[in-house]
């Protein structure tokens, strides 16, 4: 029981991170119907900017952890958002209206170049991030096993929930969200009605990148080590989460993230940690076979 509870806590934390990345996939897919393959790389860049931000905070002598985290969070969000914007502007916008596979191939190219760009500028070795928040709280002990939730895990879940609530509000209540939903339904009609489609799509990428930056920072704080390659696996898993929840659906992405976190952690905890990624990919395949629209997705009607 104690082991199970501990695994559950760990799984929820991991799921929150995946959920944040998955939102970026799901929003972009919802609005322009493409898989932003470079999104995992945006997450990786967010993690690197956070790492650099923490070191700068250290050099400036900002000792208080909450202040440092807040500063780095804002910094990473702002600067990663520029990457999200630039990637869309450079690699996807010229391809709107090109043939079906073109944006995806361009996205793969972008992903490869971003990875190598970071490898070139920051080096290939894994970067230790140090421990910013330590300590935790013992929930209960059973079978001689302490069930423990760390402050960091609490921070991760709280940040995720707050951001999720914020973004749901943006999408459902603000003019920007209304424009996004309009573009999602019918881009041409939205343009005719005066919605600036290019700007809306850009902002979608910016929002996705912002959340990926947060995920990157949380990942850095949770695992303590990052390298230029983390975006690949995290990206695929987050995409799996988005598909699992129903691509295009915001709550679906969060739910999918949680489920992927659960599957991964419990598989590693009870079966074998070598095959946890295989389990995640297996789930992706199973979902696509039996419920291609995901858990919360709407069925897609193919138009001629």
């Amino acid at each position: 029981m104690a082991y199970f509870s501990q695994q559950l806590i760990n799984a929820i934390t991991l799921g929150a991170v995946y959920g944040l990345i998955a939102i970026g996939y799901t929003m972009v897919y919802g609005i322009i119907g493409m898989i932003n393959f470079a999104h995992g790389e945006i997450f990786m860049i967010g993690a690197f900017i956070s790492l650099i931000g923490f070191i700068i905070c250290g050099l400036l002598g900002i000792g208080s952890a909450p202040v440092a985290i807040l500063l780095v969070l804002l910094m990473a969000m702002a600067f990663t958002a520029v990457y999200g914007w630039a990637v869309e502007r450079v690699a996807y916008r010229p391809l709107r209206g090109s043939f079906r596979l073109a944006p995806l191939i361009s996205a793969i190219g972008m992903s490869i170049s971003l990875q190598n760009y970071v490898q070139l500028t920051q080096g290939a070795r894994p970067k230790p991030g140090g421990q910013i928040v330590s300590g935790g709280y013992n929930l209960f002990s059973a079978d001689g096993f302490d069930v423990r939730v760390t402050w960091l895990q609490i921070i991760i879940v709280v940040v995720t929930v707050v951001l999720m609530a914020g973004f749901t509000w943006v999408i459902s209540r603000t003019p920007l969200g209304r424009q996004q939903r309009a573009c999602e339904q019918d881009m041409k009609m939205a343009a005719l009605l005066g919605v600036n489609v290019d700007r809306t799509i850009s902002l979608t990428f910016v929002m996705g990148a912002t959340l990926a930056a947060v995920a990157g920072m949380l990942f850095l704080m949770y695992y303590g080590v990052i390298d230029f390659f983390i975006g690949f696996l995290a990206g695929i898993k987050a995409f799996t989460a988005a598909v699992l929840g129903g691509i295009g659906s915001l709550p679906g992405a969060m739910l999918g993230g949680l489920l992927i976190g659960l599957i991964e952690v419990f598989w590693a905890g009870y079966f074998s940690s070598e095959y946890k990624d295989v389990a995640v990919f297996g789930i992706l395949v199973l979902v696509l076979i039996f419920r291609p629209t995901g858990l919360l997705g709407k069925p897609e009607i193919e138009k001629v």
Partner: peptide, 26 residues
């Protein structure tokens, strides 16, 4: 199982399979 999927889903699933094979080999 996967060929009923639309283009970009198929891409990701094949990518996943590629990784599965590699992980199994390892």
């Amino acid at each position: 199982p996967v060929l009923r999927l639309r283009g970009d889903y198929l891409a990701i699933v094949t990518l996943g399979f590629g990784e599965i094979i590699r992980l199994v080999l390892i």
